Simulated scan of single mutants.
Amino acid sequence: MRTDYLNIPIRDCGEPLQEIPESAFPRMHPHPYLAMGAPYPGSPWRLRSGALSALYRAQSLLSARRPGWRIALFDAYRPLAVQHFMVWDAFRREAQAMGCLTRLASCAGPDALERGDPEIYALLAPKVYRFWGIPDPDPCRPPPHSTGAAIDCKLVDGEGRDVSMGGPVDDFTDRAIPDFFASALPGTPEYLHHQNRELLVLVMTHAGYARHVGEWWHFSIGDQMWAHTVGADCALYGRVGDG
């Protein structure tokens, strides 16, 4: 579990959340976590104003390199309650895969599981938190998406078709690793996957975002993970109220 970035101080600049225009950035329909019953009190398609401006810059860079291609969104703002819902769902799926689902029956979340069954928590937590941010209520340790400064995204071509990235968003296998296809030979499908991932990270980082070390689709700007990646003294965005 990579949590060292959570030690970086936050000096929130106070920027508000803004709606992300679907006309500019195509999105998943329906929203994948809403479809699962995640408790969103408002729109998930929001970002801090500075993060949204950076996303427009990334789109401009992409358009210059691949006319007609667009950055498509899978997820953006995720309140803490939604993070808790999705993390607990991930625990249940991991428990089911390992044949220990019944041991979660009396628990209401990862905190209760850690207290009530530390053995099974120790077994499942590294698998879950490899990809999911810990839903810590401490405002000094927010999950990245709860800051309104992180997105999960992919590329689509001029016809709106998915560009091949070597696996879908939220593919929680080793294929999620950004450089998973880096050794592929030219002319192979795997080489194309890697080239497309490299294009996405190029336009996003040139626009100011930083990529998650373990997920090709996750980018953030101004949060603690971003600060850790770029060497900033502090984060610009903390957790946004769950409204």
Results as ranks from 00 to 15, higher is better:
Arg70Ala: 12
Arg70Thr: 05
Arg70Met: 08
Ile71Ser: 01
Ile71Gln: 01
Ile71Pro: 03
Ala72Arg: 12
Leu73Lys: 03
Leu73Ile: 08
Phe74Met: 07
Phe74Val: 11
Asp75Glu: 15
Ala76Thr: 02
Tyr77His: 10
Arg78Phe: 10
Pro79Leu: 02
Leu80Gly: 04
Leu80Glu: 03
Ala81Ser: 14
Ala81Leu: 12
Val82Pro: 01
Gln83Lys: 09
Gln83Asp: 15
Gln83Leu: 11
Gln83Glu: 15
His84Ile: 05
Phe85Ala: 02
Met86Pro: 05
Val87Leu: 02
Trp88Glu: 00
Trp88Ala: 00
Trp88Arg: 01
Asp89His: 15
Ala90Trp: 00
Ala90Lys: 00
Phe91Cys: 01
Arg92Phe: 04
Arg92Ile: 03
Arg93His: 14
Glu94Gly: 07
Glu94Met: 12
Gln96Lys: 13
Gln96Gly: 08
Ala97Lys: 13
Met98His: 15
Met98Glu: 13
Gly99Lys: 07
Cys100Ala: 11
Cys100Phe: 08
Cys100Ser: 08
Thr102Tyr: 11
Thr102Gln: 14
Arg103Ser: 05
Arg103Asp: 02
Arg103Val: 00
Leu104Ile: 03
Leu104Gln: 00
Ala105Thr: 06
Ser106Glu: 10
Ser106His: 12
Ser106Arg: 11
Ser106Asp: 13
Ser106Tyr: 03
Ser106Lys: 08
Ala108Phe: 10
Gly109Phe: 00
Pro110Val: 05
Asp111Trp: 12
Asp111Gln: 14
Ala112Arg: 01
Glu114Arg: 12
Glu114His: 13
Glu114Met: 13
Arg115Pro: 07
Pro118Ala: 05
Glu119Lys: 11
Tyr121His: 04
Tyr121Val: 01
Tyr121Asn: 05
Ala122Leu: 07
Leu124Tyr: 06
Ala125Cys: 07
Ala125Gln: 06
Lys127Val: 10
Tyr129Arg: 02
Tyr129Ile: 06
Arg130Asn: 09
Arg130Thr: 06
Phe131Leu: 09
Trp132Lys: 11
Ile134Met: 13
Ile134Arg: 11
Pro135Asn: 07
Pro135Met: 07
Asp136Pro: 08
Pro137Glu: 09
Pro139Gln: 04
Cys140Tyr: 12
Arg141Phe: 06
Pro142Asn: 06
Pro143Met: 04
Pro143Ser: 09
Pro144Gln: 08
Pro144Met: 08
Pro144Ser: 15
Ser146Glu: 06
Thr147Leu: 03
Thr147Trp: 00
Ala149Met: 07
Ala150His: 06
Ala150Thr: 08
Ile151Ala: 02
Ile151Glu: 02
Asp152Cys: 14
Cys153Ile: 05
Lys154Ile: 11
Leu155His: 01
Leu155Ile: 07
Asp157Val: 07
Asp157Lys: 10
Gly158Ser: 14
Glu159His: 15
Glu159Gln: 15
Gly160Gln: 05
Arg161Leu: 14
Arg161Gly: 13
Val163Tyr: 05
Val163Asp: 02
Ser164Phe: 12
Pro168Lys: 09
Pro168Ser: 10
Pro168Gly: 13
Val169Ala: 01
Asp170Leu: 07
Asp170Thr: 09
Asp171Gly: 09
Asp171Leu: 14
Arg175Cys: 09
Pro178Val: 01
Pro178Cys: 08
Asp179Ile: 04
